[in-house]
Design a protein around this nucleic acid. Structure first.
Lengths: 335, 335
DNA sequence: TTGAAAGCGCTAACAT
DNA sequence: ATGTTAGCGCTTTCAA
């Protein structure tokens, strides 16, 4: 049978209130004797407090919901790890939810999280999402947006990356390597994220007096397959290009693959630049130059801000924009 | 203010018991009229039941703990996704815990999970672990071992892969490609997993009358860096080899990298075989031949068995051994 | 320094 | 067909 606070109280000959105070370190007024005794008995009985019961009273579960599109997408494990590290450090646990960018699943998960009385939610929205969460309305559960920047009612914080600057720096790097015909292989062009990146690309072109051509921007999805397909199409159409700026690393990897199969050398004949700097980027050949997003930090920071809000009802830095960093490896520079 | 079951009862002019029955679909005996009315009022008030309160009485939280070494290690996201998919399908949530293969962290997390009254735990043990969990002793929380096979008290189920067969088939494939000097680049050789793989390798050698040489087995860690280092050492020592069987894909990727840097062609000069078939394997160049572990299925199955135990107090198939599959891609076969 | 007692929101007999 | 009530394990005034 599970031992409860009552058992401990009985065994120690004290009240449950006393035991409770000791458990919660509110024992300023408890004599060392009783304290020691109670602690000893708790140890001896392998007592584990029931936080569910506690939560019912305190309205705090020390649990955070992490709602992301897909933990199997290489971008998110790092984000999740950052979030979990900070959460754990502060005594919180993380409930993980995979939405597959499906707003209906998003709604269902958020509702489940509300039922479970999580203290807060970290949320990466699908690009389809436009409305807030009904199940959240009657609560004061804070929600922090991470990665995807959308405008939503009742958001308590936002961690994003400056995609404009990232794309600008990336494009500039390519231009400085002597490239004039830079194709921008976009993922979906529906999200603010993608549009910011596209605008960064355009601005760099403009600053270097390179004409922007519509046909140099092609839109698909954020997947390896799209990178492969995009390059195949380009080649078929015999479109001119010496550099490829891919909206994420997965696309870049697919692009390089297509290039290879057509005996086109990276970076000697075509330079390829990615975005994100996922774990794999260092592992492919050639090693991928990319615009690094501080993914781990985004996860970590989002929980940090969330907890800050939990403690102080608000956070000074509720909207954090992290600056991406250009990582130059082998896929963009000729030796 | 948060609306509770009492509010609904009051608004509908019924008792909380009635509302409770409706919430839980135990409404055989409730008239359609009251049912409809109560449901309408719940909707109108955006009522979300508080499962914490429910859990306190039912002793069920519909939550499962997933305790793994590191979600950022490319092996585990797939496992986690499989587990989460099945959990979600059954109405459960997953709490994720990263232990970094540290037994102290394992203990702490399991203790937290017990406090939170999870219904069960899915656990990938560090190779250091030998003892059971003290915090679990007074409970009947089932725990399922996944991936790492160790002998532990009070385990309710086990999902593993037949590493012996996997390594045997892998080695055989290499031998059949004409290789006699096959190096086995092991990760750590402390776990049952690794030892099984080593034995599979030995057995295949033996069955094909190839002498086993001690110096052909080298031990390190399950990381890219080790694969790189191992090959560098081999080359320095001018040791003879035409094939590398790596204990996981990460090692294989590191090995290929070292080979490339020394202008040794894979698979023409040296064949490289991995183990696991993580997502990245298809993305590297050459595409990695590997012994595929059904990672997603392992996660999925482990939750399936856990829930089976939760429902029926036991499961017919509590110890599942999945069979790995040889995936032949480009790193082992000359064209 | 300690304890009594109310109550968190819900479920589950048991009545009616 | 519906309601009464006890109680899950804990925290938290308030009193002693």
């Amino acid at each position: 049978m599970k031992v409860t606070i009552k058992d401990i109280a009985r065994l120690a000959g004290v009240s449950t209130a006393t035991v409770s105070k000791i458990i919660n370190n509110k024992d300023d007024s408890i004599s060392k004797d009783t304290r020691d005794k109670v602690i000893r008995i708790m140890k001896e009985s392998n007592y584990v407090p029931n936080t569910i019961a506690r939560s019912l009273v305190t309205k705090k579960t020390k649990t955070i919901g992490l709602v992301i599109p897909d933990i199997a997408n290489p971008f998110f494990p790092e984000l999740a790890r950052g979030a979990e590290d900070k959460a754990n450090k502060e005594g919180y646990n993380l409930i993980i939810c995979n939405t597959d960018d499906d707003t209906a699943k998003e709604d269902r998960y958020v509702s489940m999280l509300v039922e479970k009385m999580v203290d807060g939610i970290i949320f990466t929205a699908s690009s389809e999402r436009t409305s807030d969460f009904i199940s959240l309305r009657n609560t004061k559960i804070p929600i922090i947006l991470v990665d995807r920047d959308i405008d939503l009612e009742g958001i308590n914080g936002k961690i994003t990356v400056d995609n404009f600057i990232g794309a600008y720096e990336g494009t500039r790097h390519l231009i400085e390597q002597g490239h004039k015909d830079v194709i921008f292989i976009a993922g979906s062009l529906k999200s603010k994220t993608s549009i910011d990146r596209l605008n960064g690309y355009k601005k760099a072109l403009q600053d270097y007096s390179i004409e922007f051509k519509e046909e140099n921007v092609i839109e698909g999805s954020y997947k390896t397959e799209w990178g492969y397909e995009a390059v195949s199409n380009l080649l078929n159409k015999k479109q001119n290009f010496t550099a490829l700026f891919c909206a994420n690393d997965l696309i870049a990897i697919g692009a390089i693959k297509a290039l290879k199969e057509n005996d086109i050398k990276t970076p000697q004949e075509v330079a390829v630049l990615g975005f994100d700097d996922i774990y794999i980027s260092k592992l492919v050949d050639p090693q991928l130059s990319t615009v690094r997003q501080p993914i781990y930090e985004m996860g970590y920071k989002s929980v940090e801000i969330l907890i800050d809000i939990l403690k102080n009802k608000s956070s000074k830095e509720k909207d954090v924009v992290l600056i991406p960093e250009l990582i130059i490896r082998d896929s963009t520079v000729k030796e």
